[in-house]
Amino acid sequence: MARGKAPRRTIESYTPRQINTTIKPGDCVLMRPAERSNPQYVARIEWIEADVRGGNVKVHVRWYYRPEESVGGRRQFHGSKEVFLSDHYDLQSVDTIEGKCTVHSFKSYTKLDAVGNEDYFCRFEYNSCTGAFNPDRVAVYCKCEMPYNPDDLMVQCEGCSDWFHPACIEMTAEEAKTLDHFFCETCLPQGQKKLQNSHTTSRHSGGYKTATTEVKKMHKPSVI
């Protein structure tokens, strides 16, 4: 007579000995990749189960995908710590967990004073079967009309409040960081535009330095 499947039960939390930190449903974790040369997988714990004796612990997880793992791959606006919450669920041994991490919302990530090794952010859900993203529209910025990459420096125009990459307005990052005020070409007063055209080399000490320019990484809502 075939043996029946051993009964299992859901547990509220567990402390894997390899990380000595308690995990619970809702936590995000780093998991051992199949190839050690690859980056760790990022997953969200949905629930934890064990056998009746409390052993053979497994975690039901929902995977986060990196841009490289999605249809279309990594694009210019994807941040280095960006992940997508997928519809891919799995059952894994708790022994594959190598640490806890935090997956921030896009907004909260951009407000971090410092980004740690365990900090990630998510602004999309990803359908692993169709390759579709939700939302399917994202913010765009600058003259180049690219979505925002929080790794990139941008400066804000004091007139229209739009954000610009220094390279797109013919500045170096070092020059952008020294600005006191900034107005884009559209918002710059006509007289100062003429001055700028006549004295290109003094652009940063003339028409472009006119009020305190914000130079930071920030999200501005608009759509593609």
Rank of each mutant, 00 (worst) to 15 (best):
E12G: 09
T10G: 07
G55A: 08
V52W: 01
I23P: 05
W47T: 09
R44S: 03
T15V: 12
R53H: 12
E12P: 13
V59I: 11
V59D: 03
D27S: 03
R17Q: 06
Q40Y: 13
R36A: 15
R32C: 13
Y14D: 03
D51P: 10
W47L: 15
I48K: 03
R32L: 13
V61W: 00
V61P: 02
G26C: 06
A34W: 09
E12S: 14
M31R: 08
S37Y: 03
A43S: 10
V29I: 11
P16Y: 10
R53Y: 08
K24P: 01
D27P: 04
V57C: 15
M31T: 11
R36S: 11
D27G: 00
M31G: 08
T21Q: 13
H60I: 07
V42I: 15
M31Q: 05
N56I: 03
V57W: 04
V57R: 12
T21E: 15
Q18Y: 01
K24S: 13
R32G: 05
D51L: 05
C28D: 05
T21N: 08
C28E: 00
W47V: 05
R17K: 04
E12D: 09
Y41R: 15
R32H: 10
I45W: 11
A34T: 13
V29C: 02
E46C: 08
V29G: 02
E49P: 04
Y14Q: 05
E35F: 14
V52N: 02
I48Q: 02
A34L: 15
P16S: 05
R17A: 14
P39I: 03
Q40M: 12
K58A: 11
V59P: 01
Q40H: 15
G54A: 12
R17H: 06
A34S: 13
I48E: 07
I23D: 00
Q18P: 03
K24V: 00
E49K: 10
M31S: 01
G54Q: 07
